[in-house]
Write a protein that binds this DNA or RNA. Structure first.
Length: 560
RNA sequence: UGGGGUAUCGCCAAGUUGGUAAGGCAACGGGUUUUGAUCCCGUCAUUCGUAGGUUCGAGUCCUGCUACCCCAGCCA
């Protein structure tokens, strides 16, 4: 992977300082800890780039650890997709894939340790009762009747919990901290709950499962994580994180630091909402090219490098922010402009017949694969009497600003000849269905000589041979939502109301140059003058299917 | 009316002992161009949420105020 000097941020500064002070024996160990309850999205990419990026530049290690403490919401499908996405992004985790569930035995021991110290008790109150007893922001909580039980009794009760002697929800292990704390997370938080659910890793071994707040700091400590990076909403949990580490014998002192999560406008990055879009079929699965999921963006044509450079350009800070989609698009354009081979594809075909081109004659034109990169070589493009051009590239009349074909005027067929439109054929409704023209055989690779005062050529348009081209399908995408912040809705409405009904347009009668025959899924091209496209996984040899990744920047006068 | 955070250009974001506002995206001019693309060149914060204060000097220190985000799951 090519190393761009990672820009500094407050977390790297903290690490630099820790290293300067000789902390952690000079080691830097981070972790990326997803819960396998959904697919990864662009926000996770930011966390992945941060955690793995730091490990890389400090010669440290980054673990991939599934935070699997809630079996009811987790599935193996998600585990597989997450591993694949991290690898696809180009990162390698240190050692084996880890699971918080690997530590369930150790966690149980440490819970027992807390109980022996009189720092945890088993509460048989109902969930509602516990909620009420916790009080609220400006009012201290009230102790449960079980709070003062002896360590011996608590131990016996916890043992019963483990042995399945309580029904689901019948008992919880709670830390004994401070019911009057202004930080709700310290008002005797729940450590374990009873849940009879088959776990994707541990099967039916357990009927009690530890909570995130208890599991996370201990997993970090067990793995020797030095810097535990998470998002801002966990900031209030940090005192408890430190409490757990301080009151158990885990022999390590990982530190938690929080950064702002990534928000993108015109989309949603909430696993719950993304799952809803999938479950209710508003999109075609987690990898629908309109989804901000890593798999969706991959299918859309985004490259790992573009996602990494995007994450880098966005930076890492503690300020809530909403990044403009334009930045993401700039990142992929920048990558593909440099690396994508060029090709011609006509999306809205209009037949152009060259009257002075001999019937049946075929010529093979040579075109560069990439005009700015000779090293990428050349390709052959067949030229015939009838070709397709784009409907938008022809007008019966237009002002001088229109740099395409106009009846009576000339334009160059890219990499080919200059043609002059001489006539049009219309259907009953008056729509132009064919354009007739003549070509100048002296204009291949050079401009017309005796110019009869015609002025400059209007421009260059792309085309595909009507008899040699390949029919294909092109899927054009627009933003999934019509408003910048889809989650912000009126009373009684949901974000679904903001879905863009025109986010997908399937165009099935397109034509692409024959050189693309057999193109493999995920191959990316720049269709000249149109944008960047990627071969979809549903594409076949018989029928090519392309997904539009992003259009070319276009900046031309509105009045042309 | 509790606690925890954040406020620097339209959007991200540097700014670390106070010394006189990086960069990217977007936008706007101009040049090159067989992609209205790319590339190149130029413009784009006398001002850092706000009101005061300290200082020769403050985005950086102090005080007050305002706005926004997070927290009362046996979710993560």
């Amino acid at each position: 992977m090519s190393e761009t000097k990672a820009p500094s941020n407050f977390i790297r500064q903290i690490i630099d300082r820790d290293l300067a002070e000789g902390k952690n024996d000079g080691q830097v160990v981070t972790r990326f800890p997803p819960e396998p309850n959904g697919y990864l999205h662009i926000g996770h990419a930011k966390s992945i780039c941060l955690n793995f990026g730091i490990a890389e530049s400090y010669q440290g290690a980054c673990h991939l650890r599934f935070d699997d403490t809630n079996p009811e919401k987790e599935e193996d499908e998600y585990i597989q997709s997450i591993k694949q996405d991290v690898e696809w992004l180009g990162f390698e985790w240190a050692g084996e894939v880890r699971f918080a569930s690997n530590y369930f035995d150790r966690l149980y021991e440490l819970a027992v340790q807390l109980i022996r110290k009189g720092l945890a008790y088993v509460d048989l109150s109902s969930a509602e009762q516990i909620r009420e007893m916790r009080g609220w922001a400006q009012q201290a909580g009230t102790p449960s009747e079980y709070r003062e039980q002896s360590p011996e009794e608590a131990l016996a009760q916890f043992e019963k919990m483990k042995n399945g002697e309580f029904p689901d929800g019948g008992a919880v292990l709670r830390a004994k901290i401070d019911l009057a704390s202004p930080n709700m997370n310290l008002r005797d938080p729940v450590l374990y709950r009873v849940r009879r659910a088959t776990h994707h890793q541990t099967g039916d071994k357990w009927v009690i499962y530890p909570m995130y707040d208890f599991t996370h700091p201990l997993s970090d400590a067990i793995e020797g994580i030095t810097h535990s990076l998470c998002t801002l909403e966990f900031e209030d949990h940090r005192p408890f994180y430190d409490w757990v580490v301080a009151n158990t014998d885990v022999g390590a002192e990982p530190r938690q630091y929080e950064f702002a999560r990534l928000n993108l406008n015109y989309t949603v990055t909430s696993k719950r909402k993304l799952k809803q879009l999938v479950d209710e079929k508003h999109v075609d699965g987690w990898d629908d090219p309109r989804m901000p999921t890593i798999s969706g963006m991959r299918r859309r044509g985004y490259t790992p490098a573009s996602l990494r450079s995007f994450c880098e350009s966005v930076g890492v800070s503690r300020a809530d922010s909403v990044v403009d989609m334009g930045m993401l698009e700039a990142a992929i354009r920048d990558d593909l402009n440099q690396h994508a081979p060029r090709a011609m594809c006509v999306i809205r075909p209009l037949k152009l017949v060259i009257d002075n081109w001999e019937e049946g004659k075929e010529e093979s034109l040579t075109a560069p694969v990439h005009p700015q990169n000779e090293a990428m070589g050349t390709r052959q493009v067949p030229m015939t009497r009838e070709v397709y051009i784009d409907q938008d590239d022809f007008r019966e009349e237009a002002n001088k600003k229109f740099k395409r074909l106009v009846l009576g005027d000339r334009v160059r067929l890219r990499y080919g000849y200059v043609v002059r439109a001489t006539d049009v054929v219309k259907d009953d409704q008056g729509n132009v269905i064919e354009v007739r023209c003549s070509y100048d055989p002296e204009t291949l690779g050079k401009n017309p000589e005796n110019d009869e005062g015609q002025g400059k050529l209007r421009g260059v348009i792309h085309w595909v041979s009507a008899s040699k081209g390949l029919p294909c399908e092109v899927r054009l995408y627009d933003r999934l939502f019509t408003v910048a912040n889809p989650a912000k809705v009126e009373e009684g409405q949901t974000f679904l109301e903001n879905i863009n009904p025109e986010s997908l347009k399937v165009v099935s009668d397109c034509w692409v140059e024959p050189g693309l025959r057999g193109a493999l899924a995920e191959t990316r091209y720049q269709f000249e003058r149109e944008g960047y496209f990627c071969v979809d996984q549903e594409s076949t040899d018989e029928r090519l299917v392309f997904n539009q990744t992003v259009g070319l920047r276009e900046s031309w006068p509105k009045d042309s």
